[in-house]
């Protein structure tokens, strides 16, 4: 792949002056209140913040699952605000990967089929991808489970399949929404390790929303959100440092 210097200077996804308001009038809630943040390519970024800080909203808007009230969101060079539902869908399919907290897999499809789902939806699944998919299967370590159905897998195994699916289409960026929220700590550790390894070994980009300092510690950088605003950034985080920073939110200064 390309060298780290070039990928590090490019942004995989970014939002500029992002504002998201739910409801109207007296009951209006400003979930995002002017957030500008860039997620550089080839990096693993974590979004942290207490409940209601707007971290999930930020991820949804940056990933094209939700639209901003004002401001702009970009995936690579594409501005999402100008896209209709169809183009947004195709963008998600071809350039974005997702790992959700739960219910990540289609129960009727086998593990192999779940992994290649975005490629199959695109109608491709052709030769050059086969090698990449093959490598992915080894990275997530599920070669002996390819013909199984999701219901036959443990929660950790299901999340690993979801990670493989997220990277299958070689997306510009993978968004992970509390990917370890439903897992025990050992399985969670496996999934986080997998995300981190994939970023470092293959130069992919991951943006992860979490409220768990231990999870955030796997990232290259953590951005902190509170009350819909970006309040801090932390390079090379450790679980303790993140925990300390988070405690600061709880005691209003």
């Amino acid at each position: 792949m390309s060298t780290t210097t070039t990928t590090a200077t490019r942004s995989a996804a970014r939002v500029v002056d992002a504002v998201k308001v739910y409801g109207a009038g007296d009951t209006a809630v400003r979930a995002l209140d002017g957030v500008s943040v860039t997620f550089p390519a080839g990096r693993f970024t974590a979004i942290m913040g207490p409940s209601g800080s707007g971290k999930s909203t930020l991820m949804h808007c940056a990933a094209g699952l939700d639209t901003l009230t004002s401001g702009a969101a970009w995936i690579g060079d594409t501005e999402l605000g100008g896209l209709d539902d169809r183009r947004l869908t195709l963008l998600r399919r071809d350039r974005v990967g997702f790992v959700f907290q739960a219910f990540n897999l289609v129960p009727t499809l086998t593990v192999a089929e779940n992994i290649t789902l975005p490629l199959d939806l695109a109608g491709g699944g052709g030769g050059s991808d086969a090698e990449w998919i093959d490598a992915l299967i080894d990275v997530v370590g599920l070669r002996d489970r390819l013909r199984h159905r999701p219901a036959e897998l443990s929660g950790g195994q299901q999340q690993r399949v979801a990670v493989a699916r997220a990277f299958a289409g070689r997306p510009d960026v993978v968004f992970a929404d509390e990917p370890t929220g439903n897992l025990d700590s050992r399985s969670g550790e496996e999934v986080l390790g997998l995300l981190g390894r994939t970023v470092r070994q293959t130069g992919r980009t991951v943006v992860m929303v979490t409220h768990d300092p231990v999870a955030a510690a796997h990232a290259d950088e953590v951005v902190f959100l509170a009350d819909g605003r970006l309040v801090d950034r932390m390079e090379a985080p450790t679980a303790d440092a993140v925990l300390d920073r988070m405690k600061a939110f709880e005691v209003p200064s």
Partner: peptide, 16 residues
């Protein structure tokens, strides 16, 4: 509902 949502999220178009 959730399964269909997942499919849409990972790139299934409305017509698909």
């Amino acid at each position: 509902t959730r399964e269909l949502g997942l499919l849409r999220a990972v790139g299934q178009t409305r017509s698909q």
